[in-house]
Amino acid sequence: MIEMLTSPLMQRALLAAVLVGAAAPVIGTFLVQRRLALLGDGIGHIALTGVAAGWLAGALAGLTPPDVLALPGAMTVAVLGAVGIEWVRARGRITGDVAMAILFYGGIAGGVLLIKIAGGTSANLMSYLFGSIATVSRTDLLWTALLAGIVLAVGLGLRGALFAVSHDEEFARASGLPVQFLTSLLAALAALTVTVAMRVVGLLLVSALMIVPVATAQVVARSFQRTMALASGIGAGVSVVGLAVTYWYDLPPGATIVVLAIVIYAVVTMVQNARRHPDLSIDPHPDLADDVRVIEET
């Protein structure tokens, strides 16, 4: 245990895991409420194109290693893609799921194509697809801390307004809220989250860290605030525990974290179902007045 905590590499990895694990479900809560649970996946795919584009730019500029621009590339392309999708969706030109499908396919194909042009192979993309937290460098950690900080600050600072557009977009418009700005902001935050989580769980599993803790929290929580707080705690918890497990056992960290999150979801759901044994004799709305009088004939 002590040994694990004194290794600088592990310290960095744990810090990155806590930050990402806590930030991702905050954005995920808004996404689930907007029925955009799969947006993170779409962004994850398109971020792969960004990784390859950054790689290509690095190779063209003669930088070493050629992937130093991968993270900035992923971030730029992910934010542009996410905001673009939101813009197109808001204009009703395309439905959400078709837009998402095009992101999925375009993102992967673009990434594989560009990495080849950059002189690499698809194998170079593997660490981005499945995460590589074990190799977190000092610079990586700085980036992760900065981006996770931005996501948390904006997501929590504007949670009232983001909640309003996520819960009832029509009412938000009729209240004069800058709906287009807020939904684009949320998309951009989701894109940033994807980019920071990329190193921890990988692009293919990014969305799991945003959504599964929320799915778990909403089984037990009774309010939006609680759901978000609980989800954030679960996210940080599974990330740290999942990562620690891989210190002793030779397992891929990203997959371990996600499987752990899903196991917790399953357990919580089962416990809750067992506890809430339906009592059919209870009036679900005891406080409602009766407005029909039944006259019994004798």
């Binding site: 809560t29 689930v32 409420q33 907007r34 029925r35 504007l158 009232g160 307004a161 909640f163 309003a164 819960h167 009832d168 009412f171 938000a172 209240s175 004069g176 809220l177 800058p178 929320v214 909403q218 929580a221 009774r222 309010s223 939006f224 605030q225 609680r226 759901t227």
Partner: peptide, 22 residues
Amino acid sequence: TGVPTTACEVVRAGLLSRRRLR
């Protein structure tokens, strides 16, 4: 959408407007 939301949270969202995002 499955995210639990209390009546109080819904009503507090009613206090937002263009110049007031909190």
